[in-house]
Amino acid sequence: MARIIGDRALNARLTRMARGADVTPALVRAAERTRAEYIEKVQQVSPGRTETRYSPRREVTVSAPGSAPNTDTGDLVNNTGAGSFRRNQAEAWSSMGYADDLEFGTHKMAPRPAMQPAFDETKQQALNDIAAALRKDMRNG
């Protein structure tokens, strides 16, 4: 299962910012935003080569290495989620078994990342939401 929780520097910054405040709702909104961006990236058709797939027979465009994967069956985006399982933590994920292979590549296939680019595009808004939650907490505390 592919999970992008965040980078170490971001986690350290959030820990310093939170100082005991509960910013879980802001983090969940950020994870949901990342999930939505991930779905959008996978559903946009990236350039690549055309292949014939069988069962059922269909033509698909296989994305080029380094580009987000193109949707084929819809399973990748239909098996995504976002949520929180611990205070001040949230995550966005795809639970398809091949999501990691697409995101990070294999010895036979170059990576086709979509979750990390989605996270990168939504990170600043997450920081803004967390800062707003902290300001609200300080006013109410």
Rank of each mutant, 00 (worst) to 15 (best):
V62P: 07
I5S: 12
S46F: 02
L102T: 03
G81N: 13
A118F: 04
A30P: 00
R58V: 11
N79V: 06
E40F: 03
R33W: 01
V62L: 15
G83K: 07
G81W: 11
A18W: 02
R86F: 09
E103W: 07
E91V: 14
S46Y: 00
A64Q: 08
A92Y: 03
R86P: 00
N88L: 07
N88Q: 13
D101A: 14
S63C: 04
D72I: 08
A64R: 09
R49S: 15
G20Q: 07
G74V: 09
L76A: 09
A9N: 14
D72K: 02
Q43E: 12
V77P: 02
T71W: 04
E59V: 15
I39Y: 02
Q116E: 12
Y54M: 13
E51V: 14
G66K: 11
L76N: 01
P113I: 07
A30C: 08
T34L: 02
S84E: 08
G105H: 04
S84I: 10
A131M: 11
F119Y: 14
N88F: 07
N88G: 08
A12F: 09
Y38N: 05
T80M: 08
R29N: 09
I5A: 12
P47Y: 04
K108G: 11
G20F: 03
A90Y: 10
T15Q: 12
I5Q: 04
A31I: 05
A90W: 01
R86N: 11
R19F: 04
N88A: 08
S55P: 01
A36C: 09
T52K: 13
Y38M: 15
P69I: 02
R86I: 04
N128I: 14
D101K: 09
E32T: 02
L134P: 06
A26I: 08
V42C: 03
Y38S: 15
R58F: 07
N70E: 08
P111V: 07
P47M: 02
V23P: 04
G6L: 04
D7N: 13
E51M: 15
L10S: 10
F119E: 01
R29M: 11
T106S: 06
R29Q: 14
F104L: 14
R19P: 01
T50Q: 15
N11Q: 13
V62S: 09
E91D: 14
E121Q: 14
N88P: 10
K108S: 11
L76T: 05
F104S: 02
Q89P: 00
R33A: 15
R53K: 13
R135V: 12
P113T: 06
G20H: 09
A12C: 10
G105K: 00
T73L: 08
P117R: 00
A132T: 10
L127I: 15
E37M: 11
D120A: 15
L27K: 03
L127K: 12
P25G: 10
N88Y: 11
S67R: 13
P65K: 05
Q116K: 13
R35P: 05
G66Y: 08
V42G: 03
V77C: 01
W93T: 09
S84L: 09
F119H: 10
P111W: 03
A92F: 05
N88R: 10
D72L: 06
A30L: 06
T80Y: 02
A64C: 01
Q44G: 06
G97F: 12
S63E: 01
A30S: 14
A118Y: 00
A133N: 05
I5Y: 07
D72R: 05
A82Q: 09
V42H: 04
G105D: 03
S95E: 10
R53S: 04
R57S: 13
A30K: 02
R8E: 13
P117Y: 02
E103G: 06
